[in-house]
Design a protein around this nucleic acid. Structure first.
Lengths: 217, 217
DNA sequence: AGTTAAATTTAGGTATACCTAAATTTATTT
DNA sequence: AAATAAATTTAGGTATACCTAAATTTAACT
């Protein structure tokens, strides 16, 4: 069995890869808040274990086995989040940290019991799909628009409803479900994005971008 | 905050000390299945941290702070066990290992939520008392079944959770919380007991009898 | 194309928590 | 009281996973 930290790397590589394809050392370093040097080391170890392939100086890609493991962790994370909200009545904004720690120590038996107690839910409280036990993902997984690379075109599948003022603004600039968005440029200074919606160019702040969930098109 | 392993040491020192007073390196080594050398090292570290006092070659004793921490872990362990049985319908011989891992990552908020969801229970599924948040512990009036005289009828209030194999066996012969047991005979040669449970006659070894806690009925 | 900047990797070092083997202290036996 | 046995501690070493600083590779800019 992979170590707790290995699992964490796999999970986050999977998440980044759905927005980026190949995942770089620095994007992982950013996401995990671990120095690039340490990430580089760990990548070497994971490559030896066969959960990912590494092209030095280029990036990493999960193997089939690595993807299975990542989806299994994501399944545990999302089932546990669902459980926290439905059964223990945690608020939405409280659950992520709790699930973060638990996903790695959750036994397979516990996974089953929780899945059963919740009636085999298909999505977590954020609306993200819960992978199956075999590591399959029925509906495509969305990712925050903030993870999308410049040059890509994506389709909106979900807008986080944490803030109604933001929802209204987002609608006013033409963003709606199934709307296609082309990312022209990512500003390095504040991570805002220049995007094209219905032939209009708009600048979107990183805060907003991280609340708009898209799939590749 | 103490590390996960520190917590484990404190918890087990507490458990041993209630039966032994001072706890030795070798008894801890036995209980934790960690070499005496490693235990000795860890003890030195815990003594420096102030959670226990160590008289070299003699043994250790928890400080007030150490006892508080230990009882806090035990509280989390027992609350989680209760939750596993009451809410997720685990069998009571399955829960100990699950709780073992979780007790160390359970946040204070989670502790509160679970305590509330269970209606502030006073004992865990084995009948062991759950310490309060301030680290107080009230033992129920009970005695080991090995002390019961032939001819008495008693009620099970607690089964010591020291050994999961024994727990499973005990469950298999029909012994459960609040179950009534009639002691028919005590064998003088090996101190085993002939008892009646649900109209079945069973022989119980002295080892098992000393791990089943009962009250008179 | 050549230089500079950015990203990545390697080198050397830290902390935790474990191990075996050897040394030391304490307890037991003759 | 001396010798031996048992318990405990110290010494030296391992694995994981992190770090900073230096070296290397790739990308970007005149």
């Amino acid at each position: 069995m992979a170590s707790e930290q290995s699992e964490n790397y796999l999970k986050n590589i999977y998440k980044l890869s759905s927005g980026e394809g190949k995942v770089t050392t620095s994007s992982l370093s950013d996401k995990l808040q671990i120095s690039p040097a340490s990430v580089s080391e760990m990548i070497k170890k994971l490559a030896e274990e066969g959960t990912l392939t590494h092209t030095p100086y280029k990036g990493v890609e999960l193997t089939e086995e690595g993807k299975k493991l990542a989806l299994r962790i994501i399944r545990k994370h999302r089932l546990w989040e669902m459980f926290l909200v439905e059964v223990l009545h945690f608020r939405w904004d409280e659950i992520d940290d709790e699930a973060e720690r638990f996903e790695h120590i959750m036994s397979d038996k516990m996974e089953e019991k929780i899945d059963h107690a919740l009636g085999h839910p298909l999505t977590d409280p954020h609306g993200d799909p819960i992978p199956t036990k075999d590591g399959e993902l029925k509906c495509p997984m969305s990712h925050p628009m903030s993870d999308v690379r410049a040059g890509s075109t994506v389709r909106v599948v979900r807008v986080s409803d944490s803030n109604s003022e933001m929802l209204q603004y987002v609608a006013s600039i033409g963003i709606a479900l199934n709307k296609e968005i082309h990312v022209k440029q990512k500003m390095s200074f504040d991570n805002s994005m220049l995007v094209k919606i219905d032939n209009n160019e708009v600048n979107i702040s990183s805060t907003i971008a991280s609340n708009i969930f898209v799939e590749n098109v």
